[in-house]
Simulated scan of single mutants.
Amino acid sequence: MRALIQRVSHASVAVDGRTVGAIDHGLLALIGVQKGDDAACADRLLHKLLHYRMFGDAAGKMNRDLRQVDGGLLLVSQFTLAADTGKGLRPGFSSAAPPDEGRRLFDHLLTQAHRAWPRVASGEFGADMQVALVNDGPVTFLLET
């Protein structure tokens, strides 16, 4: 699994003009599921999302995690993160998990996130979504499991 994570001061996701998920200060995670990923990958990714030290401490160093800053977590499925981009000028998606498998693993990640942290929001798997964010820093990382 891949997650493009961004530290945000605000982020939201809308479907058909209605907001389906929003957070204030916290972490926006765009999630890509690849062939061969399983529940253990999702669990490892969630651990990283909750414990990755990307928030500033009193000295301004990235030493604090999402839990320590009491931040929100916005999960958004994004199959394009599983794209093959090594050759040519058009992405291929042969490494992306099939839609049913991607949905199952994204739903597992979301369920586990709700169990582990009280401030979790999400987009809608497979929907045409509009994501808005204010990247704080900017701070962006690509995590892989």
Rank of each mutant, 00 (worst) to 15 (best):
A116I: 05
D43A: 15
R115Y: 05
F141N: 05
G123E: 12
V134H: 07
L89W: 09
D107S: 15
H47K: 15
L142A: 07
P118V: 03
L27M: 07
R119W: 01
D38S: 15
D136G: 03
R44P: 04
N63P: 00
H114S: 13
T145A: 08
L30H: 15
Q68E: 15
S122L: 02
L45N: 13
G88S: 08
R119G: 00
A83C: 07
V76D: 04
G102Q: 09
A29K: 01
D57A: 11
H47A: 15
T85D: 00
L74G: 08
R53W: 00
V8F: 09
L4S: 07
F141S: 05
D84M: 07
M129N: 02
L45P: 10
R53Q: 00
K35S: 09
L27D: 03
P99T: 08
D65E: 10
D65M: 14
V134R: 07
E144L: 01
G72H: 06
R18F: 03
G32Y: 00
L74T: 14
Q130K: 12
A39N: 06
A40S: 09
T85V: 04
V20M: 06
P138C: 14
V20C: 08
D65K: 14
D70A: 14
G36P: 02
A40W: 03
G123T: 05
L142C: 09
D128K: 14
A39R: 10
A42P: 02
Y52E: 03
I5E: 08
Q68L: 06
D100L: 06
D70C: 14
L75M: 01
V15P: 01
L28D: 08
L74V: 07
R18K: 12
A59W: 03
A59H: 06
S95D: 14
M62F: 12
D84G: 13
I5V: 15
T145W: 04
A59P: 05
V69I: 12
I5T: 12
V20S: 06
V15K: 02
E124A: 13
D107H: 14
L28I: 08
K35H: 11
V15L: 03
G123R: 09
S9I: 03
S12E: 01
V8M: 08
D16K: 04
A42D: 04
Q6T: 02
G26I: 11
D70H: 14
D107E: 15
L45M: 15
R18Y: 02
I23S: 01
A40T: 01
E144P: 00
R7L: 00
D16F: 04
R67N: 12
A22R: 09
A97Q: 11
T80Q: 13
K61H: 04
T19S: 01
G86I: 01
S9T: 08
G56Y: 04
G123M: 11
L75G: 04
C41A: 08
A127S: 13
S77V: 11
R64S: 02
R2N: 02
L75T: 07
G17P: 03
S9M: 04
A42T: 14
G26C: 11
